[in-house]
Write a protein that binds this DNA or RNA. Structure first.
Lengths: 191, 191
DNA sequence: GTTAAAATTGAATAAGTATTCAATGAATGA
DNA sequence: TCATTCATTGAATACTTATTCAATTTTAAC
């Protein structure tokens, strides 16, 4: 038998899953709370029993996304380029095995990009701050000769936006397979 | 002096510009008609004098995006890879010179992706059908040896999604320069 | 088995947003 | 100059969507 606490946790999870699905496929603003409730098989009233508002639900999802996004460090790599290979391989594998990962990606991206995102939620989403993260690794790889020449921030941006674009499509349509990670790493690799 | 007809055309253009800006930065659903009117320096009533509804305005923008998106053919290229080089160079140059281009890109992408897009508008947006477009060129390049091995559709998808991701960021934030087109072409180029 | 507490509903209400419209101002052509 | 037509406004209306709540059912815990 299920305790009250477990039941509560399960219900919250059902809501969160339904909301993630919808926020990703329609966007936050276009998603109606009745849609969320319907997809989670409950009345709208019950949804509000578990979450104070649509916005609070959004915030919870964004916080989950922040937690889930702990990327591998560059410590254990011999060359800077290996970091990108490992990073991309792990990310794609994870996205294939856990489609929720790709969806979280898209959710975070929308929250960061859209000017319609409530300010405090945007702030949370911004903590994932990923473009600058790669800059030191790129600088290291340029000294080493494994990463191509060019402004590190611009290279980092190109790599990250590509990953972003790929994740965005994969999240909503898994018809087309993810690319070979090497192809994407070639954006930064020195020839 | 301005004729009535010219004035009307200018007004419509002002509305369209304001709407594009907002649809891209907030998304279609989150954009309020009062926001559009305010940004176009007019009353909401006047906006409805020029466009029957918010949706009709959206449709017009999507149709403009469809028109504007005539990509170069592969005819005049010696090698398949040259098509990708030319294509990417032209696209990036155009996006730098006409920021509206990058915005249109994002608008079309949202219309295609979001399940909240009204069906008839989505159909129009879908005509830009770009992923399959590259497949024959990739096949040609693989025979030739200028493009890497792999499922053509998957390669095409990787290339296009990367472009998409880059355009998406550039449209809303021109702080970071566009990448060197060669970097992106390296996704498809044979080593 | 009882019962108090929690879950659940859905219709009512509140809040927000698109659209209309009657009235006013400005410009054109006779 | 005058009258007709078009541009323009913004408050009123219609519609959509979020949120509340009183009533009912279920169930975990004793």
């Amino acid at each position: 038998m299920e305790t009250r606490k477990e039941q509560k946790e399960r219900r919250r999870q059902e809501i969160v899953n339904a909301a993630l699905e919808l926020f990703v496929s329609k966007g936050y603003a276009a998603t109606k709370v009745t849609d969320i409730a319907k997809r989670a098989n409950m009345s709208t009233g019950l949804m509000f029993h578990y979450f104070e508002s649509k916005e609070a639900l959004y915030e919870e999802l964004i916080e989950m996304g922040l937690e889930g996004t702990r990327y591998p460090g560059a410590q254990q790599c011999e060359h800077a380029i290996d970091f990108f290979v490992t990073f991309t391989e792990e990310l794609f594998t994870y996205m294939e095995q856990q489609p929720i990962m790709a969806k979280m990606f898209v959710l975070m991206a929308e929250a960061q990009r859209s000017e319609a995102t409530p300010e405090h939620i945007r702030e949370i989403a911004m903590k994932v701050n990923t473009i600058e993260q790669f800059v030191p690794i790129i600088e290291w790889g340029q000294k080493e000769g494994t990463i191509r020449e060019g402004e590190p921030l611009v290279i980092s941006n190109a790599f990250w936006c590509s990953i972003q674009g790929i994740a965005e499509r994969y999240a909503t349509n898994q018809q087309i397979a993810l690319p070979d990670p090497q192809w994407i790493v070639d954006i930064v690799r020195k020839r």
